[in-house]
Nucleic acid binder design. Structure first.
Lengths: 342, 342
DNA sequence: TCGCCCCATGAGATCGATCTCATCGATCAC
DNA sequence: GTGATCGATGAGATCGATCTCATGGGGCGA
């Protein structure tokens, strides 16, 4: 591929002049500029960004690490980041960690080696991630996305998970529910999920209601009806459940319907995330929406500011209750259909 | 950040020796190696990939362009690509085009400037994309993903869309359907969608059935019931529809159910793509599955082979019918409920 | 003991663009 | 007319790692 030197030679000028023709055309005489441009066209010259990056000590690249792309929350946020980054002339290097700490470590190391100008990371548990301790010693700007902020920790952007889930719980309470449970992936794998559970308990307590033990599903985004069955039987059976994420809620609704349970007539189901898809389904998914687009955009904007040496404030971004058909009033009779395994 | 030269100085060796310590340790004496390693640790040395890339004239980066990340088909495929690429020591630069030709152009230009070692692109219509003409003149290996191959065009990887949709159609015919329609996004925006329509017509013709005109939705991934309403009325009303993609099918099912239509009792709905989510819903989505993981993996494997100068064969990857509850037998009585706008 | 070869290491060039500083010619003010 | 200024341009250094080639010392066979 043609380089600047060949263009300069063909145009009969020095490399410096050829370089200026592209970087600051106004500093080159029109005649010369024309000659260089012609030469560049003729040779199909395309500037080499790698060389520029080395010289400039800046790559105009941002490293992004998300747990997975199979969850629309991350895909949608990444989409927004990509658009925002490109508008600012930045590219994204995208990686997935599967919440695996050793992969997280390797990925961050790799990206720092690549000399990305900034890092946007979503980790499983921000507090005890070894990677993050390392990162705090680095000078590369780094921002946590979705992870809750910790005092003395890395800057983080996202919603107030605890408050948001408390509001979601209050919404169910306001609809008349008293027997409300919460469903999560394994081991409250992510720090967000833990905060959401705390928010749920808080709201229940406020209303003098008994918070139930968490109902744990074997997978993060797919419901197993058997895990829920005990909670749907007996005199204290649940009339509503909160899920830690929308995919879990959607698959739970599917399983319930397959078992001839009606949502919301027999059980109200509420999600968390507000992915686009939830709107399309029937019943539409009632969810506590995280502003995924805004989070993506703000993450990029914040990182760019940090790259320029500023340290912008990082308030929580606003969550919003999204009404949906998956939540209704509790059944009037406590006699709900019995759950049969499909 | 510490560079190799400072490490070399601290270790009291030359840059060449320091470099060798990391690149080919066996060529350095154990004593020296130890000294260099200690110096590197002490200075928190992290090799600069940009410099290496410039010197090596290879970036170990692959540029990926997809239309959108909000469609799980692309997100899932990208996820697979990322895993496969990282295993091979490559990183991905990810961009979204929104099917916008000018963005496609700019993105490809940008990535070539970044000197990616290979490109994996999904474009709207492969045949007349101006970008691709440009690319054929370049030496950077480039592979189309999902787009159908064209004689004399760029190599492409994906399923045989026409045959796949014909098989999907035959599946509905085998279930007893005779009045089958097809629903697509605007203007058969993508070349895949056009081939799928051709496959549908072919299968209908084979069975002496009348192919219907395409039912076009204003959006690529969201159904508008009003567009479908005419086809669901009258003596020749449809008993089954094929959708060009799963998101469209899923939102169509949602809209139908909201209008008190039963799927599949009143209308069978079949999708195309086989996204994971389809399995979780009730009714589960019957779909013609594209092997998204395999496509992503094979795309990377093929690109890597191309980077090494080979030109591996590119057979179609196998599609597979995924049964689902959204397809059933046609209603026995031709008297289906009337569609009411919600 | 001489000569050859191999191993470990170093000096210097290289990748491609950009930045600094110097130079040269022309224009302008006095 | 002469010195000052400005605009256009070129020479050379620089970013950091790696590659080639040269060198020097040690070991081994004759």
């Amino acid at each position: 591929m043609a380089d600047l030197l060949s263009v300069a030679k063909l145009a009969g000028v020095s490399r410096a002049t050829a370089s200026r023709t592209f970087a600051s055309p106004e500093r080159v005489s029109p005649t010369t500029r024309r000659k260089v441009e012609d030469a560049a066209t003729q040779l199909a010259f395309r500037p080499n960004k790698v060389a520029r990056q080395l010289r400039a000590q800046a790559t105009k690249m941002i490293g992004v690490m998300v747990p997975s792309l199979n969850n629309p929350v991350f895909a949608e946020q990444l989409h927004a980041m990509e658009v925002a980054a490109r508008e600012a002339g930045y590219s994204l290097i995208v990686t997935t960690s599967g919440y695996d700490p050793s992969r997280e470590q390797a990925i961050v190391e790799e990206m720092l080696s690549q000399r990305v100008d900034g890092l946007a990371l979503t980790v499983a548990v921000a507090r005890d991630s070894a990677v993050l301790a390392t990162l705090q010693r680095e000078t590369t700007p780094c921002l946590l996305v979705y992870n809750p902020p910790h005092p003395g920790g890395l800057p983080a952007i996202g919603v107030d998970n605890r408050t948001a889930m408390a509001e979601a719980t209050r919404h169910l309470i306001a609809r008349g529910h008293r027997h409300i449970g919460m469903v999560a992936g394994p081991l409250l794998q992510s720090d967000r999920a833990r905060l959401r559970y705390a928010g749920y308990r808080q709201a229940m307590r406020e209303h003098g209601l008994a918070a139930r033990p968490l109902i744990e599903m074997p997978r993060h985004t797919q419901a197993e009806l058997a895990c829920l069955a005990p909670a749907l039987a007996g005199p204290n059976r649940l009339t509503a459940v909160l899920c830690t994420n929308d995919l879990l809620a959607i698959s739970l609704i599917g399983e319930l319907q397959r078992a001839k349970f009606s949502v919301p007539d027999d059980l109200s189901v509420m999600g968390f995330d507000g992915i686009d898809l939830g709107r399309c389904l029937y019943p539409s998914l009632c969810s506590m929406e995280q502003p995924r687009i805004e989070i993506g955009r703000a993450a990029i904007a914040t990182l760019l500011a940090m790259i320029q040496g500023q340290s912008p404030p990082l308030p929580f971004l606003p969550h919003a209750l999204r009404e949906g058909e998956s939540v209704g009033a509790p059944p009037t009779s406590r006699q709900a259909p019995t759950l049969r395994s499909p």
